[in-house]
Amino acid sequence: MAAQEEDAAQAGGPPVDRLGFLLAWHGGITDTLIRKALGATGLTPRQAMTLMHLADGPVTQKALIEWLAVDPSVVVGLLNDLETDGLVRRRRDPGDRRRHIVEITPEGTERLRTTDTALETMERELVADLTDRDVATLRRLLGRLRTSAEDFTCGE
């Protein structure tokens, strides 16, 4: 192990020798920062992501399940909580009564504004040492990572 890597490991810093662990370490810290930023909004990260998705307009419950890539029961619980708080509304699709349409409410839109402000502040602090070009490159590279279940086989 190089001296710099050994110093980082002893100081509790990131595991710099394995990219996967480095991404996980930064992801864990970022998750903590996101949860802290969202603390004032009363939302979980998944609830915030759902409101962000609904800000573009109503979607079917099935589309949310696919977009969040979770079990349908998770989305039902998530929507139940958001609906109880008055942040989203579900209604039957008049064209297909088996389908639910989900939309953000005015209260949800206001909560999303607060959420966006909190996240913007956190993100600015997170990337404070990066240039705008660095941030754009990071976004582009992260977008190219093969992290979906369909892409990743773990040597199967």
Rank of each mutant, 00 (worst) to 15 (best):
Ala128Glu: 00
His26Asn: 08
Asp17Cys: 05
Gly12Arg: 10
Asp132Glu: 04
Glu120Ser: 14
Glu6Arg: 13
Leu23Pro: 00
Leu126His: 09
Ala63Asn: 01
Val135Arg: 14
Asp96Tyr: 01
Thr153Trp: 07
Glu103Lys: 01
Ala55Asn: 04
Leu23Asn: 04
Thr137Leu: 15
Ile104Glu: 02
Ala63Thr: 04
Val70Gln: 11
Ser148Met: 11
Lys62Tyr: 05
Ala11Asp: 00
Gly57Ala: 00
Ile29Val: 09
Asp85Thr: 13
Arg146Ile: 02
Val135Trp: 13
Leu64Thr: 02
Ala9Ser: 05
Met122Arg: 06
Ala40Tyr: 02
Ala11His: 04
Ala63Cys: 01
Met52Phe: 14
Val75Ala: 13
Ala63Trp: 05
Gly108Tyr: 04
Arg133Asp: 01
Thr153Cys: 10
Leu22His: 03
Leu54Tyr: 12
Arg35Asp: 01
Gly143Glu: 02
Pro15Tyr: 11
Leu112Ala: 12
Ile34Gly: 01
Arg113His: 09
Glu123Pro: 00
Ala69Gly: 09
Thr147Phe: 12
Leu54Cys: 13
Ser148Glu: 03
Gly77Met: 05
Glu66Trp: 05
Thr131Asp: 03
Glu107Leu: 13
Leu54Glu: 02
Ala8Trp: 02
Gly13Tyr: 05
Thr41Gln: 10
Asp134Lys: 08
Asp134Glu: 05
Cys154Ile: 11
Cys154His: 14
Arg124Tyr: 03
Asp129Thr: 10
Gly12Cys: 07
Asp134Leu: 13
Gly155Gln: 08
Met122Leu: 09
Val76Phe: 14
Trp67Lys: 15
Leu79Gly: 06
Ile34Glu: 00
Val76Arg: 11
Ile65His: 09
Arg91Val: 14
Asn80Cys: 04
Val75Thr: 14
Ser73Asp: 04
Arg144Lys: 11
Ala11Thr: 01
Ala37Cys: 03
Arg91Thr: 10
Arg113Gly: 02
Gln10His: 08
Met49Cys: 07
Arg98Phe: 07
Gly27Thr: 06
Leu138Asp: 01
Val16His: 01
Glu125Ile: 00
Leu38Asp: 01
Gly27Asn: 05
Arg144Thr: 03
His26Trp: 08
Thr114Glu: 02
Asp116Ala: 12
Arg46Thr: 07
Cys154Val: 11
Thr131Cys: 10
Thr84Asn: 14
Glu125Asp: 01
Glu125Phe: 00
Phe152Ser: 08
Leu51Ala: 10
Thr147Ser: 08
Lys36Cys: 00
Gly28Asn: 04
Arg113Asn: 07
Thr117Lys: 11
Ile29Glu: 03
Asp134Thr: 06
Leu68Gly: 09
Pro94Ala: 15
Glu103Gln: 05
Thr115Ser: 13
Ala40Gly: 02
Glu5Ala: 13
Leu78Thr: 00
Val88Gly: 06
Trp67Asp: 09
Glu150Asp: 08
Gly108Asn: 09
Thr50His: 10
Glu83Ile: 03
Thr30Val: 11
Val88Lys: 15
Glu83Lys: 09
Arg90Lys: 15
Ala3Pro: 00
Leu33Arg: 12
Leu126Met: 09
Asp96Asn: 14
Leu79Ala: 13
Ala9Gly: 04
Thr137His: 10
Ala2Met: 03
Glu103Leu: 00
Gly42Gln: 06
Thr131Gln: 05
Ala48Thr: 08
Pro58Gln: 09
Val127Gly: 04
Arg146Gln: 08
Phe21Ala: 10
Leu79Cys: 10
Val76Lys: 05
Gly77Tyr: 03
Val88Met: 13
Ala118Lys: 06
Ala3Asn: 03
Ala63Phe: 05
Gln61Leu: 15
Leu68Met: 14
Met52Val: 11
